[in-house]
Every structure is written in structure tokens, then in C-alpha cells.
Design a protein around this nucleic acid. Structure first.
Lengths: 399, 399
DNA sequence: CCGTCTATGTCCAACTAGTGAACTCTAAGC
DNA sequence: GCTTAGAGTTCACTAGTTGGACATAGACGG
């Protein structure tokens, strides 16, 4: 069964091919599947029957455009995936199906002082609430994607140092949640998930290489290379927030000086405006004021943009992505921040690398990470979990 | 024949599997092939027969250890690949076979004033000389890898601006050489090929992610991600030489200021020593003097190392490779330059990314690029050229 | 309203390719 | 000399894809 290179593995690959084609297009007729996958009509016929029997796919006898085409689409309840995202102040949960449809989504404020167990309790409750609300079958849950705002150690799966709260350091979020929900949980940091979210549903659609830059309390980047998250051998790729811009700049929480983060992250930038604009400013507030014309806020945002642009220029020289997507609250500032970023990139990156680059704001706002968590669950389960169930379901029918 | 998902494609994949297993191990018995590939003994038997008939593989009736095992190895003359490398002052050619053995290698000085056609003439001659010297069959040449010291435009295949000589700009080296030699030529820049060379034969063996930093007249990096050269969507990834270290630093040939290159490349560094050490210094000379204890040269090399280290730290934060290999003449300085690099990396990179990083000197010296060109020819042809010939050769035997 | 046309989906026979089991072969060990 | 164990081969079987024949049903033209 598990032998690579056997015909059954080929069959499996073909099943995946069909499922993927259907998923990408949303709905296809068998003839279209045959054309896009390159498989013969006969093979497609067999595979579709098998998938239909397994419940993965629905065949609607559509009498749509023409003669007698039956539209094949992923059946909505074939499998459910869940995305959970712990933010600095929010907890977000989304429920989706294998057809890449988001069935429900909800967020609630997360108390900054909450301990890790409390956080997981809240997450579990919210997940349960959404499951009930959408009325999906719990046994259909194929996987959960989990986003945490901090580095995850690949080997141990534990949360590293620069996380939101000291109390969460060393916890193993995936294990924790898996224990509560009883389904496989895959975890990654918020920047990577944001990248994945924008790639699948947002500003990164249609691109294979993408850098998602998230500016919030810290600055991080999620890198997508050839359609996959790139984490690096040690799992800490994308730490754009700690590239050095000024060797004698402000001391950063990482211990170095003049990191990009010290010029762009909320915790370092907001204090600049405290004396003039009061102490309880938020990034959102600054953005709102800037849009309304406040010159101080505009200036600060532009400066942040320029610094981010320097970092992006480095990224651009090294990796040459075709698209950079800006996420986080700051992205709401639109051209006020994107303009300076582009200007900086144009100045500091080599022209051949900068020429093809497009810098866009994220299209999903704060939802990027939850949706990315959904996408993670989908991609981590491969299509294989789905297909396994198909095979198992189909097997009795043949004996 | 070209349909994906068909049995023939499966068969092809299995052929490749076997060839790869044999190549990696050098020599295997059929039973061992079966174990490592996961294929059944019967299948292996068939595949080996097919490959043997096609001439790709040799079966030596070894009466080695035990009962009756026949060692299967790639036949040395099944296919020949050639690597050609144009350096700033050298032309290097290597001839190898599919078993990853280098059969011959030769270099000669290349006149810096040579025009592009002269250069290609010389390359053609040298290739012919080596082919004769090794006595290989010209018809067995499966492909040629070509290295050029400048950026290659992916679409047009023409040489970009920052190349060695103005006269070469706009030429299409691959076409040029392909026309003369009559076999497929694949071209890439020297940094990428150096990375590939070190990956396959040098300091990068056994690693999947590698950054090769070449310091010469310019500074460039070749990035290997998941075992493959990463060029980026625009083909200009790895331009580590032009990340900005000091916004008000020296003006760089790229138009920006304070690029890493202005602190590390020969053309900017050698003048520093001119007043004290004379005008006709070379990097090699500086390295030699430094090893003999010359304090000025040591200082300059250490400074270069520190600056390179800053760039590597950025690279490390963004990409988190597990290994960085230093190439070019400067690598000969060994610890004199590696020490400061490591120190800088330790200072400017975030600890979790720096921890697992090893910084090594290249093991191949000036040969890295030619050998990389060989590897490029091997990888570009995939195993498929090889397998095609097998299939074609085998086909008549069946009819 | 009816025949023709065309694209869809299904069925069947042919073919490709991998697999387990039985078999042969060789050298080592007792 | 006999046994044994691992290596490689052969053969019958099975899984799975494919091309072609066939049935179907709407569109189009008369």
C-alpha cells in the first residue's frame, strides 16, 4: 500500500490530480477534468465514480450550457478544516471545507494576561461554538491549523522566546490543542500563515513566490517559494525584522542595535507620537489620523515605510520575489506607507530585481492569519487524508 | 508518451529511481536496489535488464562477498557531460560522466581583452582537446553546462550588464556555444554554479540548503534551496553584493551607496593597500602576505570579513540556511577571514538563526564553478535524457 | 416537429507494468 | 557431501490506464 512506484501509488496520484483540478476550478465537467489533467476520459470516469462513492465529490446533473455535462465539485461536507489564530489581542477561528470555502469565522478579544491554558480553553470553546453553529459533522474534521505569534521550534514544536507572553514560552501549542480537540493540529507562526492566507485567498493569488511582511508589535516576514512556505532548515527564515539597518541605532529586544524592528514595529514607533498625540495611541489610531491628514502621523508612517523599504530592498536583492504583500494594521494606511516603501526599494535594491517587483497591501486584513491557518490545515493534510478516507470508504463497496 | 499519470510515466519514474539509487551508492546489487528503492525484486530485475540493454548501466558479475551477487553500476561511457566556465581571467573546462566522475579538467588563461567570439573559439578548442584526450565518444555527450561571470536574463538568455567585459554584454552564450558544439548548452552565472559545485562535490555535500558566497571582482551569492538552485522569479536572486550596509558609504557601480560590494570586492579593497604595498597587488597576493603575518593585509582581510559577515547575517535572518560556503580567492585566507565573518554573523544575526549555521571555506577553490557547470549539465538533463537514450536504444530490441 | 450534429459520459477489450510465489543457482558452513 | 540462505529470474496474476465503440441528450437547421 505504501510502496512508492507501484501502480496503486500512480492511481493515488491521479486521484489527487483530479481532486486538485476540481478544487482549483471549483466545478468542472468530466471532460474538462480530462483535458486539464491530461488523463483519458475513461480514467476520469472511473476516478470520478470512485470519488463519488467515497463521498469526496458531488456530481450535480447540471443541465447548464450545453448537451449533457455533469458538473463535478467537491462535496461541501467531505472534510472540514479549522483554522485557529492567536494574535496579540485577538483569538480568531475559522471553519472551512475542502473546497476552499470558508463556512464560518469568528474572533473575540483575548485577554493579554491570559495564561496559556486559559488561551487554549478559550480556543477550544470557540471552535466548539463554531462547529455547532455551522452544524458540521465533528468526525469530518480533517485537521486544524494553528497560528501563534512567535517562533516555533521545528523539532520540539515548542514556542520560542519572542512570543507574546512570557507565560506561553515553552508550551507546545500543537500538542496542547490536539489533546483538546482530538484531531491533528499543525502549527506555524503568524507571518508564515499570513503569507499562506494571502497566497490562497488574497493579494498573492496566482503568484508562486511571495513575501508577506507583517508589521505589528514586531516585524516578520513569511516567505513562499514555489508555492510553499519556506521555513529554512532551522525554521527561522523570514526574520526580516532583525536585519540591521543602523549599527548604532536603538537597542532591539533581540539584543542587537538598529534592527528594522526598532524603526518600524509598533512598540518602538508609537512612543514617538506620545508627547504630541497622547499616550493611548494605537497603530490603528495613527493610521486613521494620517488618513485624515495629520502631518505628524503621516510623517511617522512615511518614515516607517522607508525603513521597511530598506529591508524589503535587501530581501529583494537576496530572494527576488515577484510580489511583496504588506500585512498587519499598518497596511490599512495604503499608499501612505506603500509609496515610501516602493521609493526605498527603488533606491536601495538593484534595478533588475526591483523592476519586476510589485508591492501590494494585504487583501485580507486581520483575517490573513486565520485563513492561512485554514490553508495550512488543507496543505498539511495534503490531499491524502481526504483520499485515504475515500479509499477506505470505497473499499467495502468492492469486496 | 508525454501523458502524466500514465503507466509509462510511472515506469519512467521507476527507471529514474533506480538510476539515482545506483548513482548515489556508486555500485549496488539488485537486491540492494530493491531494498533502497522499495521496488520489488522482480521489477528491479526487469529495469536492470532494460538499462543494461540500453547501455546506461553495467553489470559486473562480481563474486564479491557472498553467494552470487551481481554489482550494478553506471557504465562510465553511458553519457558524457561537459562543464565550461568563463572566469575573469581564466577559461576552465571539465569532462565528466553520468556517474559523477570527473574524467578530465583543464584551465587556461583567458585574455581579458578577448572578444566574445574569440572566447567562444577558445572554449570550443579546449573542449575538443579534452574530448580527444579522454577518448570519449562525441555522440555520447548529453549536455554542456556553461558558467559566465555575469547575470543571465532568463527569458532571452543574454548576458546582462555587470558582466566581465562590455564586449560580451548582450551575447547569448548558450546559443553561441550550442551552435559550435552541437549539443544542448545550459548557462548560469558563476555564483550559482559555484554553489552547485560545492553542493555536489565540495563543502556542501549532504546539505539541502546552502548559500555560496563568491568574493571576487564583485560579490555574489548562489542559493541552493531544497537541493536546487534558487534563481527567483526574475532570475536575479542572490545579489548579496548589493545589499546596503551604509547609506552614506562609497558609491557602488550599481548606482547605490555603501553596498557590501564596496567593502568587500577586490576592485574596492585592493586600492586600500596600494599606497603601502604597491599597485600590482592581487587578492591572492594579499592573502599570501596576510598568512605570512603582514598586519596591514590581515587588517584588510578581517575588515572584509566583518562586512561580509554583516551581509551573511542579513541572509541568515531572511533565509536561515544551514551552511554558508565562502568561495573565490579570498576563501584561501581561511580563518583570517572566516573568523571575522562568524563574529559578525554572531553579532548581527538573531541567535536562533545563527546557532545552527556553519560557515565553511569552499573545498574546491577555483574549480567550484566548472564542477558546478558539470553538475548543471547533469541536473538540467535530469535523468531523462539519459533515460530517453535508454528507451530508444532498448526499443528496437523489443520489436 | 423532426432529423442531424456534436460533445458528454460509459463500457469493454487491449495493453502496460508491477508483484508474489515458485524456482534455480551459487557459495558458505557444518 | 548435505544443508542453507541469499541472489536473481520466470511466470501467472492483478491493478490500472487507454482507445475506441456506444449510448445519450441538447442545439441547430429545415
Amino acid at each position: 500500500m505504501e510502496t512508492p512506484g507501484s501502480q496503486s501509488s500512480l492511481h493515488r496520484a491521479n486521484l489527487e490530480r483530479v481532486v486538485r483540478a476540481v478544487r482549483l476550478a471549483g466545478s468542472l465537467t468530466q471532460a474538462e477534468i480530462a483535458r486539464t489533467t491530461g488523463l483519458s476520459a475513461a480514467t476520469v470516469s472511473n476516478i470520478v465514480r470512485e470519488l463519488k462513492d467515497g463521498g469526496t465529490v458531488e456530481v450535480t446533473p447540471t443541465s447548464a450550457g450545453g448537451r449533457r455535462a455533469r458538473a463535478v465539485s467537491l462535496s461541501g461536507d467531505a472534510g472540514i478544516v479549522i483554522g485557529v489564530d492567536f494574535g496579540h489581542t485577538h483569538l480568531r477561528v475559522a471553519v472551512g471545507n475542502l473546497a476552499h470555502q470558508v463556512l464560518a469565522e469568528e474572533s473575540e478579544p483575548l485577554d493579554v494576561d491570559a495564561s496559556a491554558p486559559q488561551g487554549f480553553d478559550r480556543a477550544e470553546q470557540l471552535v466548539n461554538r463554531l462547529i455547532e453553529a455551522t452544524g458540521v459533522d465533528r468526525t469530518k474534521i480533517a485537521g486544524v491549523g494553528l497560528g501563534v505569534p512567535g517562533p516555533i521550534d521545528l523539532e520540539s514544536g515548542s514556542l520560542g522566546s519572542s512570543a507574546i507572553l512570557p507565560g506561553w514560552i515553552g508550551t507546545k501549542p500543537a500538542e496542547e490543542l490536539q489533546g483538546r480537540l482530538g484531531v491533528p493540529v499543525h502549527v506555524d507562526n503568524d507571518a508564515n500563515l499570513g503569507a499562506l492566507g494571502e497566497l490562497v485567498w488574497g493579494s498573492g493569488r496566482g503568484v508562486r513566490d511571495l513575501a508577506y511582511i507583517k508589521v505589528a508589535s514586531g516585524v516578520g516576514a513569511g516567505l513562499v517559494i514555489s508555492g510553499k512556505i519556506y521555513r529554512g532548515p532551522g525554521g527561522t527564515a523570514g526574520e526580516i525584522g532583525h536585519i540591521t539597518l543602523d549599527e548604532s541605532g536603538p537597542v532591539c529586544r533581540c539584543g542587537n542595535r538598529g534592527c528594522l524592528e526598532t524603526f518600524a514595529a509598533a512598540r518602538y514607533v508609537l512612543p514617538l507620537l506620545q508627547s504630541s498625540h497622547g499616550t493611548d495611541l494605537t497603530v490603528e489610531g495613527v493610521v486613521r489620523l494620517a488618513r485624515d491628514g495629520d502631518p505628524g502621523c503621516r510623517r511617522v508612517i512615511a518614515d516607517v515605510g522607508r525603513h521597511i523599504g530598506s529591508g524589503v530592498a535587501n530581501l529583494c536583492n537576496l530572494l527576488n520575489p515577484s510580489r511583496v504583500v504588506l500585512g498587519g494594521d499598518l497596511a490599512e494606511a495604503g499608499e501612505l506607507v506603500l509609496g515610501p516603501i516602493r521609493e526605498s526599494v527603488g533606491r536601495y535594491a538593484i534595478p533588475s530585481a526591483a523592476r519586476q517587483l510589485s508591492v501590494l497591501p494585504g487583501a485580507l486584513g486581520g483575517r490573513a492569519e486565520v485563513l492561512g491557518a485554514l490553508a495550512l490545515a488543507l496543505s498539511e493534510m495534503g490531499d491524502s487524508t481526504l483520499l485515504d478516507s475515500t479509499l477506505h470508504a470505497a473499499a467495502p463497496a468492492f469486496t
